[in-house]
């Protein structure tokens, strides 16, 4: 039978929490092995970054939602970390299969990759709790303060970099329900259509590099 919006949200939340119970709040044995296989072990940087971003996130969450919500923000963050580790492990397994490598040192020492992945995990958590999806009720409710791209501002993350993880995240998280996938697709479209084109986006540097690289090539003659 069709669910009421509240029942659907509660089911979604229960499913997310249930899926993440078995994930620890520390890297699993498999994930720790990927870290150790790196030329430069990223473990300490990962843990330090999580501590810093956890503090930043919960403070900003409290500012957005209300002074007593900092603890709630920390709970959301902790769920996000579990999801982040879980999806990271699955991504690395998929990459290992695709590329036949076990040393992901460059990727796992890239702080933008980690911030993007964590931001995506938190976006999924907040969307599950109904906090970051656009509401038809308008802009007055506190929930809309957490709406995407709020997380990009909190992590000072360029939208273009966040965009890079979305598809791989959806591929790697097999339990995501279609409403959350739809939400990430909405974020993706917003980035492609608008946010990635704002001043200061890394996209412009990439375009410059592509243009400079292609300048020596002959122009294609127009097709007849």
């Amino acid at each position: 039978p069709p669910q009421t919006p509240i029942r659907a949200a509660m089911t979604s939340i229960q499913q997310l929490r249930g899926d993440l119970i078995s994930s620890g709040d520390q890297p699993s044995t498999n994930l720790a092995t990927y870290f150790k296989n790196c030329t430069v072990d990223p473990t300490q940087d990962v843990l330090k970054r999580l501590e810093t971003l956890g503090h930043v996130y919960s403070q900003r969450f409290g500012q957005a939602v209300g002074p007593r919500s900092t603890v709630l923000g920390m709970q959301r963050f902790n769920l996000g970390v579990r999801l982040y580790y879980q999806v990271m492990e699955e991504m690395l397994k998929m990459e290992e299969q695709r590329l036949s490598v076990q040393n992901f040192s460059k990727l796992l020492n890239d702080s933008t990759f980690h911030s993007s992945l964590l931001a995506c995990a938190l976006e999924v958590v907040m969307a599950t709790y109904g906090e970051s999806r656009y509401k038809s009720g308008g802009v007055d409710s506190a929930e809309t303060d957490l709406c995407f791209p709020w997380i990009l501002d909190v992590f000072r993350l360029p939208a273009f970099d966040f965009y890079k993880v979305i598809e791989s995240f959806i591929k790697a998280d097999h339990t995501m329900n279609k409403d959350i996938v739809k939400h990430l697709e909405t974020c993706e479209n917003l980035i492609m259509e608008r946010i990635a084109w704002r001043t200061g986006s890394p996209l412009f540097e990439l375009l410059k590099q592509e243009h400079a690289g292609g300048a020596a090539e002959q122009l294609e003659t127009p097709a007849s």
Binding site: M91, R98, F104, L107, T112, E167, S168
Partner: peptide, 21 residues
């Protein structure tokens, strides 16, 4: 099930997107 369009080719993945190929 969802209808998300996966655009990455088989030879493309997170490693290439973060310039780690």
């Amino acid at each position: 099930s969802h209808d998300y369009h996966f655009g990455l080719e088989d030879h493309e993945g997170i490693s290439e997107l973060f310039d780690c190929d």
